[in-house]
Simulated assay, not measured.
Amino acid sequence: MAERFGLHEKWLDRMTGNRSRYFCEPDSADGVPKNTGDLATLAGQRALAAAGVELSSIDFLILSTGSPDHLMPATVNLVADRLGLNDLPAIQLTAGCAGALQGLYTARALLASGHRRGLVIGADSVVKLWPANRDLKRISPAELANFALFGDGAGAAVVDASVDGPGLVVDHVVLRTVGKGRKPAQLVRWYGADGAPTITAANGKEIREPMGEEDYKAIEQYVPGLAAGVLQELAQLTGWPVAEVEHILTPQLNGVMADRIREFMGVRPEQAVGCVADTGNNGNALPFIQLYRALKRIEEGGGDRDRVLVTTIESAKWTVSGLALRYRREAAGDVQ
Rank of each mutant, 00 (worst) to 15 (best):
I62S: 07
M265W: 02
I199C: 02
R262C: 00
I139N: 06
V158E: 10
V174I: 15
L149H: 06
D124S: 05
A109W: 03
L88A: 12
L12M: 05
V245A: 09
E233F: 04
R46L: 11
Q45I: 04
A316C: 12
D215W: 00
S315D: 02
Y22Q: 11
N133V: 00
N282Y: 07
A243D: 13
C97Q: 12
K180R: 14
F23A: 13
V159R: 02
L104I: 15
S125Q: 09
F147C: 09
A154M: 09
A154H: 10
L323Q: 08
I313F: 04
A112P: 05
A50L: 07
E220M: 07
T279K: 13
G255A: 08
M15V: 14
V158A: 00
A98F: 04
T311N: 01
N284C: 14
R117G: 06
K296R: 15
S140L: 10
F60L: 07
P184I: 06
E209P: 03
T238M: 06
A132F: 09
R21T: 11
C24V: 15
M1D: 12
A49R: 10
L111K: 09
A154G: 10
R208W: 02
E244D: 15
D334A: 13
V158H: 00
A112Y: 09
A142N: 01
R176G: 08
D171F: 12
V126L: 12
R14A: 13
G192F: 01
T198K: 14
V242I: 15
G179W: 10
A218V: 07
L175R: 08
T238N: 09
S140G: 00
G274F: 14
S125L: 06
C24M: 03
L110V: 04
T41Q: 10
G303F: 11
F147M: 03
L144D: 05
A218Q: 08
G212A: 15
L253T: 05
R117S: 08
E3Y: 13
G122K: 08
L231V: 07
C275N: 14
G37T: 10
R208C: 08
T65A: 04
F288V: 14
E214M: 15
D87I: 12
T198E: 14
G122V: 09
P68R: 01
L253R: 01
T65H: 06
L234Y: 08
W318Y: 09
L291M: 13
A196E: 10
R208S: 11
R4A: 13
D38G: 11
V230L: 01
W240T: 01
E25G: 03
R329L: 15
A142I: 04
A218F: 04
S28F: 12
V169S: 10
